[in-house]
C-alpha cells in the first residue's frame, strides 16, 4: 500500500487560559491510500486535534512541530493544471475520483515512497494554521502548492455537530453545490445537479425537496447526511469524520456508519474515522490507532487490537465497553431485584 500521508513526529501545543497545553506529542503515523483508519481515544486524548491538524484547520495560535507529508502523486490529479495561485482548476469530468491520474509521476507511485515530493513544512517546524477560501493564509516558502492538500477538494471533513457546520439560512442544495462549484469548476446548473445526485447518494428521503430545505427543517441524522454530501462533493481523497455520529442516537448512528462505509468503498476514498467508541470504530475500520494524553499508544489491524491488544490501556478500553454480550454490572455486584 502507498501512504496517502505520512505524519512524522507531529507535536501540537496551544495556550489555554495562559497555560500551554500539549495536545499531541510526537505522533508518527502513515495513513495508507484507500484504507479505513479509526483514531480512537477518550476526551483530551488529542484525537480531534490530530484530525484538525491533518485537515490544516488548527487555530492559528497553535504551535505545530513535525511534518505531515502528502503523497503528491496521490493528491488530486490536477497538479499540473493547478495555477500557482492555489485556486482550484480541475477539469469538470471529475467522475473518476478513485482512479489514479495519468501524468502523475509514476515512479513515486511504484516505490511507495513520497519522502521528498510532499513535504508540507519542514522548514520552521511550523505548519500554516488554517485554510480559508481554499488558500492557505501563511504559505510555507519554497514549497510548491501542488502538495498542499486543499480542504474541500482533497479532504472532506465531517464534524460532530452538523448544526454548526452547516449555514443555518442557506438551502442545503446551494451549500453542497457551492462546494462542487468551487472545487470542480462546474457551472452553477451542473453543480446544482451534482448536489442533487449527492443527496441521493447519501440516501436522503426526497432529495428534490431536501435541496431547497434549510438545515433547521431536517433532523439531526438528515443534517449529518447533508454534511457528508457536502464533504464528498468535490471527490476528496481523504474523508475525515470527527465524532460524526456521537450526537446521534444508536439507530441513526448505525445508518450513518453504514453510509460512510458505502461511500468510502464506492469512491475509493481514504477514511479517517475519529471516535471515542472502540466498538463503533471496530465495525468500520481496518486499522485502529489508540491515542491517550496526546500520544499514539497503539496502532494495529482491527482484529489485532480487539483480540490481542498490546497496550494495557487498549485492554482497559475494551473491557470498559458495555456490549450486549458483556456481563451485566448488576450480576458482578451480586445484587439483583
Amino acid at each position: 500500500m502507498t501512504a496517502l500521508l505520512s505524519i512524522r513526529d507531529l507535536t501540537v501545543r496551544y495556550r489555554r487560559g495562559g497555560v500551554e497545553v500539549t495536545a499531541l506529542k510526537g505522533i508518527s503515523l502513515d495513513v495508507e491510500a484507500g484504507e479505513r483508519l479509526a483514531i480512537i481515544g477518550e476526551s483530551g486524548s488529542g484525537k480531534s486535534t490530530l484530525a484538525l491538524a491533518i485537515a490544516r484547520l488548527l487555530a492559528r495560535s497553535a504551535r505545530v512541530g513535525g511534518t505531515i507529508e502528502w503523497s503528491a502523486s496521490l493528491l488530486q490529479k490536477s497538479q499540473s493544471v493547478t495555477p500557482p495561485s492555489g485556486l482550484p482548476a480541475i477539469s469538470p469530468a471529475r467522475g473518476e475520483i478513485g482512479s489514479l491520474v495519468a501524468g502523475s509521476p509514476s515512479a513515486t507511485l511504484e516505490t511507495g515512497e513520497s519522502r521528498d515530493d510532499g513535504l508540507i513544512s519542514p522548514l520552521a517546524g511550523e505548519m500554516p494554521g488554517r485554510v480559508e477560501g481554499g488558500v492557505p493564509e501563511r504559505r510555507p516558502s519554497a514549497i510548491g502548492d501542488n502538495n498542499i492538500p486543499l480542504l474541500g477538494r482533497d479532504i472532506g471533513f465531517v464534524f460532530q455537530d452538523p448544526s454548526s457546520s452547516l449555514d443555518p439560512v442557506m438551502p442545503v442544495g446551494k451549500q453542497i453545490a457551492e462546494v462542487a462549484r468551487t472545487h470542480l469548476n462546474l457551472a452553477w446548473a451542473d453543480a446544482y445537479a451534482k448536489a442533487k445526485t449527492l443527496l441521493e447518494r447519501v440516501r436522503l428521503p426526497d432529495p428534490e425537496a431536501a435541496l431547497r430545505a434549510c438545515p433547521h427543517q431536517l433532523s439531526g441524522g438528515q443534517k449529518q447526511r447533508v454534511a457528508i454530501a457536502a464533504a464528498i462533493a468535490a471527490g476528496p481523497k481523504l474523508l475525515i469524520a470527527d465524532e460524526a455520529t456521537s450526537a446521534l442516537d444508536t439507530i441513526v448512528q448505525a445508518e450513518i456508519v453504514s453510509l460512510i462505509r458505502g461511500l468510502v468503498t464506492e469512491d475509493g476514498m481514504t477514511l479517517a474515522f475519529i471516535s471515542h467508541d472502540i466498538a463503533l470504530a471496530a465495525t468500520l475500520a481496518e486499522r485502529i490507532a489508540v491515542l491517550r494524553h496526546g500520544e499514539l499508544i497503539e496502532l494495529g489491524e482491527t482484529d489485532q487490537i480487539l483480540n490481542a491488544p498490546r497496550h494495557a490501556y487498549t485492554r482497559t478500553l475494551l473491557d470498559a465497553h458495555l456490549g450486549l454480550d458483556a456481563k451485566p454490572l448488576l450480576d458482578r455486584q451480586g445484587a439483583s431485584a
Binding site: 444508536t250 448512528q253 448505525a254 466498538a279 463503533l280 471496530a282 465495525t283 480487539l306 483480540n307 475494551l318
Partner: peptide, 9 residues
Amino acid sequence: AATPRLNRI
C-alpha cells in the same frame, strides 16, 4: 441491531 458489537474472538 444498531448497537455496536466488539467481535472479539
